[in-house]
Each structure stands twice: as C-alpha cells, then as structure tokens.
Design a protein around this nucleic acid. Structure first.
Length: 906
RNA sequence: GCCGGGAUGGUGGAAUGGUAGACACGAGGGACUUAAAAUCCCUUGUCAGUUAAACGGCGUGCGGGUUCGAGUCCCGCUCCCGGCACCA
C-alpha cells in the first residue's frame, strides 16, 4: 500500500500543523502494517519557492544554503515524531537528481505541444519593474515592497495546456474513490459549460468571436461587451473616438482583482466604444459595443453578446446604461385556478417537473381519497431556488403582471431530485406535493397543451412511479419592459425560429449564423514561468533566430547557476548569470541564449509521488516495475487548501505522462482525505504576530511524542474541521498514557467476563475507527477500556492484546511495555489482534421507550428480541406500565435494539 | 461575488433517522497530606419545584417542512472557515 502525505516546505521549523499532517496518518500506516500490509510511507521536501528567496535576500546568502540547513534541521525534528517513514525513499524538489526529471518531462511536454509559449496575465509592479506574486499584492492593490499600484499585464509566458485535458479530468473523477465534496470542488473548478462561439462583424472590418451558453437568445443580443483587456480595444484605438475615457476605464480595470470584478453585488461599470459598432448576425441589426470589467479576458473568448432580457448581469448593465432590452424567449404562464391550499411563508408546495425546454413547471398532485392519482398543472417556471413569496413579489414587480395570486400562482424551480414534500388532507382529497426531476427530457411531451400526458419518474427512495397529469395553461408569454427572465421557453421575436423550444433553437440558430457549438471551461491553461531565481530552470534554449529548443536529455539536469544576484532589479535573475550564458554557448553554439525563467513550484509537487517509489533511478522518473508495484497512491492525506489546485495539477501531470506513454496509470490517487487546521489556543489561526503559536518541540519536551500524537488524534475527526489547541486538553492524554504505563499492576489471574467482552468490543471499534479516520473515537474507546480494566482487573493476555491496539497511537510507550511484558521482538511487527464476534456482542441492550413520540424511559432487552417480548418487558416495568394503563394502544413501532414507541390514546 | 465545508454543554467533541451530550478538558465538592502538588472518589446541558428524590418543561446557529420519531432528511436564511489560478 502506498500512503502519501503532502511533502512539506522546509520553512525552518516544524509547526504543529506538520505533526497533524504526518503523525496522525502514521497511526493509519502502522495499523495497516500490523494487518499484514507492506506500506510505503515516504517523506520529502518541496523546497523551491519564494520564502527561501526572500530569506536569502535578507541574509545575503544563497537560498540553497538556507534550504539545506532547514531540511537537515527538520529531518531531526521529524525523527522525534517517531513516525514509520520510509526514509530510504526520500527526495527533494531542489535535488538536481530530482529536477533533472522535472526538466526532462517539461521537454517532453514541449515536444508534444503540451507545453507552449503563450500569454498569461500577471501582477506587474511598475515600482519594482517586475512581476510579483498575488501574496505580495496588498489589499489596496499596492506592492508590499514599494507600495506602487499593481496592474494586470499580459506577458509572454510558458504555459501548460491543461485545458486540453479538461474533459479527461472531469471523467477521471468517476474512477476514483474520493469524498464527493472534493470531486465536486474539482468539477466546479474545471467548470465546463456547453454553448456556442458566434462571430459578430465589427464596423472596423474584423470579426469578434463571442462565447455564449444561450445561443437561442441571439435575436435578443442588443449590444456587445468586450473585456477591457481584449486585444481589439488597443488594436482599434484610432477608430475609438472617446479613447481617453476608454483608456482610463481600461487602466482602472487593470487594477481590480478578478474577485472584485466578479462581484455581482456591486454596480456594473463600463464604457461605450464610440465609433465602433457590431452587427447582430441573426437579424443584421447594428448594435453598440461596450467594454466592461464584468467580462473577463481570460474566460471564453473575452467577449460576450449581451442579452439583457435573459441574462442577469447583462440586464443590470442595460438598465444602468439605458440599453434596449428585447425579450426573445417566452415563458409559460399558468391559468389561475381555485381550490388550492393557501400558502404561507416557508411553505414549499406542489409538484415540480422539469420543463421540456429546460424550465420548470409547478404541479400539484391530488389524490382523491378513493380514486386514482391525478396531477394538475398550476404554475409556470422561473430559475433559481427561491422562496415562494419572494417569487410572487418579484413577478409582480418585474412584470407588472398583477393578478398573481399567491394561492395558486405558486412558481417554483426545478429541484435536483424528487422529494415528497408535504401532505395535506381535506374531506375529499389528499394532496401530496413533490419536487421532481424527470429522468430524461425525452419522457416529457414536447408540446404541453391542455390534456393528459403520462410521465415516468423515479422517487427518492427509488420506487418507480407513474403519474398522469393534466395541464391548465394560460399560454406562453414574453415579459415586457426591462424584465429579466433567465429560464428557457419558446422563442419569440426571432423570425423563422419563433415557436421553437430554447433547446432546439440553440443548435439551429448557431448553425444559421455559422457559429460553432463548443464547450468552454472555467479552467485556464497553467502559466508556469516565474521570473525568479529559486526554482527549476526551464530547460529551453533559443537559437539565433529566437526559436525555442528543448535541452536534450544528456545535458540535464540543467543546473541552476550559482553566480546570480537574485535581489529584485526588474529582470529575471538568471539573465544575469554569466555562467549560464557561457554554458549555453559552449554546448549549443554562439548566438544561442538560455531561457531565464524558472518553474512554478506546483510543477515540482505534481509528480513527486512518482519519484519516491524509485528515487535513485538514473534512467527515468521511475521504472515501469516500480510504478506497477506501488502506483496508484492508495491513500493521499493532505490539507483542504490543496483541494483544487495541487490536486488538479498533479492529476493532470499523471494523465499527460500516461498520454505520452511515460506512466502506467491515468489517475495518481485512489483515495484522498482532507484534513483541517490546528488553530491556536485562542481559536485563531496560529501566527507569530498573534503570539498564539504552539511549538511542537516544546510540547514533546513537556509531555512526550506519544502524548502529542494521541492528543492530535483525539481532538476530533481527521476529516474536515479545524481544532484549537487546548493546553489543558493535552494533559488528559498524558494522564491516560500514565495510566496505561501502570496498567500491568491490575493484571489478575482470573479476568472478569466484562473486561474480556469490552476488550473485544474495543478491538473491533479501534480497527474500524482507524480505517474510517475517526481516530478520536478510537482513542475514546481505549480510554473506556482502561477505566474498566483498572477497576475490574484484566488478564496478562488481554493486557498484551490491548498494547497491540494502542501501538499505532503510542508507538514508543507500547514498545517499552511490550518488552517489559517479556516479548523479545518489536510490538510493531506483531499483528493487530482480531476480535471475537461473540465476545464483542451485547447480551442485553438498553433501549428507549417512547409514548406518543416522547421519551418516557428505558427497558433492558436482548438486541434480537421480537416485538411481543419487548411489549412483555414493557408491561413488567412498573414505572412505564402505568403510563399506558387505561389507554388504547393504536400502534407499536419497535425497532429491535433501538426503540420502542407506543402510540396510544385515552 | 463564485465554489467547497462547518455550527451540538463553560471547552474539544460523541450519536447506522431511534435514550442528545460518549470520551476528555475545565469547574465544584470530598478523601489522602502539617500544607501544597500529584493521585483517587462524587457532581456537572438548562429551567421550575420539593428537605430530598422520583418526576416535569426546555434544549443540537435561525425560520419552516417531512416522519410514530429529526442533531441527522428536505426547503429558505444567518454567521464562521478554506479556495479563487505567482504562498505552498
């Protein structure tokens, strides 16, 4: 088994977070070894990056010096943890034997067009005359070093074509056993949206391509918006008559972050490009062109067609700038009916099905008390999950459509699944209200008219149902004025496409105007060039014509030069190396120049798991055999902060290697677990400035490594949450281990049955808790056992079994006690004990007794006892029996081993 | 803003839809001690009430819903944490 933890950055000192990251997974590793697995648990260092460079500038030394010192020191600290690391498999990203292969893979990617020279957007500091990291940009968009105003700048950059793998990376998620929330975060990060690219002719005689997810609304495109950084803005500045205004706006936009620009709560801004117009390819209409920062240069084509009637952001913009809002999609309006229950705030009603054109209906299913089911259509659709009252208000405000009656105009949205929501009864009818998602669109009649249709759907509990419903429609209506309607429907104001469904119209309109159906991804290509010293040199040389060549394998590693002044001066540090320049000319010839950028450190950490397994390999990243033996990683423990970027980059890297035949597996990690943070004792994130940093060395000195490790395991479940370090709490774990240390004094000749039974329950629970990463409840179970064993005594045999289950948690102490008990080989080579299912079983359990749903007492009963026995036991209980005396028992709900609930009345 | 996650006693947390608060910390009381520390024992969600107990009401961020039964499932909110592409 391959258990991986994220390799640390050698900042100089282990912090408590490192302990949490490495010592707690070590419990899992030791447990798996004790169950007979051969487990690889490697450790290494991700040692390139900004902090070393900054430290080196400050101390006027080479970053290598600083880094190597730190690594040495931290290895010693890691030793004190007592982890079962596979140190023979270690590596470091800064080791030339490691980065040789980082460079080689880059070269392979370059030859195969996965790496390319492109354009990226960077933070440019005009004061330092250099690119700076996001981290160095202060909240007011100024540089942390010189306080100059930072701007976004397009620059030539080495890029990695990760977008080419977007679909694969999405599909690959279906093949790994990760928690759903991590998969979902990755899906969202990739952000695939289906749509079309459509060309608009500009008055300057060039076409601009827009991406839209709603080509069906093309006839409603009443203006065009370019991102402020769109190339045409600069290119056609001579045609733009209000250039000063435009230039000012572009400048302002450059200083905003994407997060600010995407903030939908802020008022939209933009400027019209006077002198340039565009032609709507659907109807030939001449429309104005704007620039606005809500359109991002890096997403889609950096240009949109604005359809203010059917897009929220376009609508807001159009209202502000007084632009034409033309509805082209009509939505269904219901026919108000009588006799539907009054709705109250928070009361969600009715049956909702997905609309044939992708909107929603609201339906009510009524069941005659003794007749067949039928369903009435009572509402039209809108998008977004909203409260019924809010929607009514909204409809009235936005449409002026005043006869919406809350009683029967309930409009709701499609829900992701079916769910039985409410049930209401009256004299003649019983109404069930459902949210429904139909299993496929084909199952819905394409034309919904008054009449009967059969719809099949699958209920939440997967019981198939068929319902018949009849619709009462008032018809299709295009909302007027500046109203916004984002759901699909039937086309209007769209010439020959009038009457067509949105979904069909998407393809039809795209085809008519010569557009292309395509997907766009939120994911962008990965910019990996850094204008810094302390990184892997990008292994490229340029020939005298300026053409890039990958440095051949025999010249790798392409060593990072030492003769470099890396203080920030505005040019990449490597450009100042004489040695690098001479080396390049010596090897490749006069006139050849080296690439002077280094790589993003995310590259280093995208493949380290492939090097660990064969870290001395001279022929390649790792041998085929080593990959077959150890890959994929069975368990990858890491921080939640790496959920999207690192995890996606490394998945990409593995896939790219697979595509080039350099790796055997498409996915690197079978399973992933995210851990939370350890906070300071005050509940805040630990930081030197807050003075709430807990030093693990100090803690180890104070209470011992086993105690620190167990305390971290005991804090709470390993997955997810953040926990404050409690200086008192750790004392409890120290106390526990001291009691274990004295436990042998309670060994007796004859052991009480309870102790043996509890031991087997504990073995069972600790084993299952470790595999579920619930180390906290495993520790708690062992505490309960020790409490019992101290009171009642335990046998020598039970004592040793107990030491074995404690061994993964407290490796030092248990080893010591194990030898003291007379064993001659390490406890860590012993087997994790198996439990006896009979001994681990309860003979009697205490279950709750409810009367009319209220807890009224408990009874003690065999877990498998039947209902009659349970009722008998109840009647024998004096106290509970009186509560039902004289009452009629209407219903008994008995769940063996869980609950007995008596529904009774006078 | 968008995406992912979270909220349970004084604190960290426990609880396959079935006795809410296991286990631990802290606090209070007691034993041991000249005394203190350490250790051991008891109490400890909250409110009312009684000498006391039994018992009763309330209670898992807020508002609704489903269910015999909801911390757990559904809908709508609030607040907090992580990520948002050059920190790693």
């Amino acid at each position: 088994e391959y258990v991986l933890v994220e390799w640390p950055y050698p900042s100089g000192n282990l912090h408590i977070g490192h302990w949490y990251a490495f010592a707690v997974p070590d419990i899992y590793v030791r447990y798996r070894r004790m169950t007979g697995k051969q487990v690889l648990y490697p450790m290494g260092f991700d040692a390139f990056g900004l902090p070393a460079e900054n430290a080196a500038i400050k101390r006027n030394i080479n970053p290598r010096e600083w880094t190597e010192q730190n690594i040495e020191y931290m290895k010693g600290q890691l030793g004190s943890m007592g982890n079962a690391f596979s140190w023979d498999k270690t590596t470091s990203s800064t080791d030339p034997e490691y980065y040789k292969w980082t460079q080689w893979m880059f070269g392979e990617f370059f030859k195969n067009n996965i790496a390319y020279r492109g354009e990226g957007i960077v933070n440019w500091c005009p004061g330092c005359n250099t690119v700076i990291a996001n981290e160095q940009v202060q909240s007011d968009s100024t540089c942390e070093r010189c306080d100059s105003l930072i701007e976004k700048k397009r620059m030539p950059q080495w890029m990695i074509r990760i977008t080419d793998f977007a679909d694969e990376l999405l599909d690959g998620l279906e093949t790994v056993d990760w928690p759903e929330h991590i998969k979902e975060a990755q899906r969202q990060w990739i952000g695939r949206s289906k749509g079309a690219e459509i060309d608009f002719e500009l008055s300057v005689g060039e076409k601009v391509t827009v991406f839209t997810t709603r080509p069906d609304t093309l006839f409603g495109a009443t203006y065009l918006v370019l991102a402020p950084e769109h190339a045409y803005v600069e290119k056609y500045k001579d045609q733009i008559t209000n250039w000063d205004e435009v230039a000012t706006y572009v400048q302002t936009a450059k200083q905003k972050s994407e997060i600010e620009r995407g903030d939908n709560t802020k008022e939209k801004t933009g400027v019209k490009l006077e002198g340039i117009t565009a032609k709507n390819p659907a109807n030939g209409e001449e429309i104005p062109v704007y620039i606005a920062d809500y359109v991002l240069g890096g997403y889609g084509t950096g240009a949109i067609m604005a359809v203010p009637a059917h897009d929220e952001r376009d609508n807001a913009f159009a209202r502000k700038f007084g632009l034409v809002v033309r509805p082209v999609v009509a939505e269904l309006i219901h026919d108000p009916r009588e006799g539907v229950e009054t709705l109250e705030r928070g009361h969600v009603v009715d049956l909702i099905i997905e609309h044939p054109t992708d909107g929603t209906f609201l339906l009510q299913r009524e069941k005659d008390t003794d007749g067949p089911d039928h369903v009435h259509f009572v509402g039209g659709g809108t998008e977004g999950e909203r409260h019924i009252v809010a929607i009514q208000r909204e409809l009235e405000e936005e449409t002026g459509f005043t006869n919406f009656n809350i009683v029967n105009s309930a409009v709701h949205v499609v829900d992701a699944h079916l769910y039985r929501h409410t049930k209401q009864k009256n004299q003649h009818t019983e109404s069930y209200f459902y949210h429904v998602k139909l299993t496929s669109l084909e199952q819905i009649p394409s034309e919904i008219e008054e009449g009967k249709h059969t719809i099949e759907w699958v209920s939440r509990d997967e019981i198939e149902n068929k319902i018949t419903w009849s619709g009462h429609l008032a018809g299709w209506r295009a909302f007027e004025g500046t109203a916004l309607h984002t759901s699909a429907g039937k086309l209007v104001n769209s010439n020959e496409f009038n009457g067509m469904n949105s979904e069909e119209a998407k393809a039809a309109i795209t085809e008519k105007v010569g557009g292309r159906m395509t997907n766009t991804y939120r994911l962008r290509d990965w910019s990996i060039g850094r204008q810094r010293y302390w990184g892997v040199p990008i292994p490229i040389v340029y020939d005298p014509e300026g053409k890039a060549h990958a440095i051949p394998k025999e010249h790798l590693p392409w060593i990072l030069p030492e003769d470099v002044d890396f203080t920030p001066t505005g040019v990449p540090p490597l450009s100042k190396s004489v040695e690098l320049k001479e080396r390049t000319e010596r090897i490749f010839g006069v006139g050849f120049t080296p690439e002077v950028e280094t790589m993003d450190t995310f590259v280093d950490s995208s493949w380290y798991f492939l090097r660990y397994i064969d870290n001395h390999n001279q022929e390649g990243i790792s041998s085929k055999e080593a990959q077959q033996d150890w890959m994929q990683v069975d368990m990858y423990f890491g921080g939640a902060e790496h959920t999207t970027m690192h995890l996606l980059y490394s998945r990409f890297w593995q896939r790219a290697l697979k595509r080039l035949g350099l790796a055997q597996h498409a996915e690197p990690y079978k399973m992933r677990i995210n851990r939370g943070l350890i906070l300071g004792p005050d509940g805040n994130k630990m930081s030197k400035s807050k003075g709430n940093v807990v030093d693990p060395d100090e803690q180890v000195q104070l209470v011992g490594a086993d105690t620190v490790k167990m305390y971290l395991a005991f804090m709470g479940p390993y997955q997810g949450a953040n926990y404050p370090w409690d200086l008192g709490g750790i004392a409890g774990l120290r106390r526990f281990l001291e009691r274990v240390n004295g436990l042998s004094a309670h060994i007796t000749g004859e052991e009480p049955k309870e102790t043996l039974s509890l031991l087997h329950k504990t073995i069972k629970k600790v084993g299952s808790d470790i595999t579920e990463f619930k180390f906290n409840t495993g520790v708690s179970a062992m505490m309960i056992f020790v409490n019992q064993a101290e009171k009642a005594g335990l046998s020598k045999e039970s004592y040793e079994l107990f030491l074995r289950i404690l061994a993964p948690f407290a490796p030092h102490l248990t080893e010591e006690l194990w030898y003291e008990a007379g064993n001659s080989c390490s406890i860590h080579t012993a087997e994790f004990p198996a439990f006896d299912a009979n001994l681990a079983k309860d003979e009697l359990v205490t279950i709750g007794v409810q009367i009319n749903g209220k807890m009224r007492g408990t009874i003690s009963i065999a877990p498998e006892a039947d209902e009659a026995t349970a009722m008998e036991t109840l009647k024998n209980s004096e106290e509970l029996q009186t509560r039902i005396t004289g009452q009629t028992i209407k219903k008994v709900i008995y769940v063996p081993g869980r609950i007995l609930n008596i529904i009774a009345s006078e």
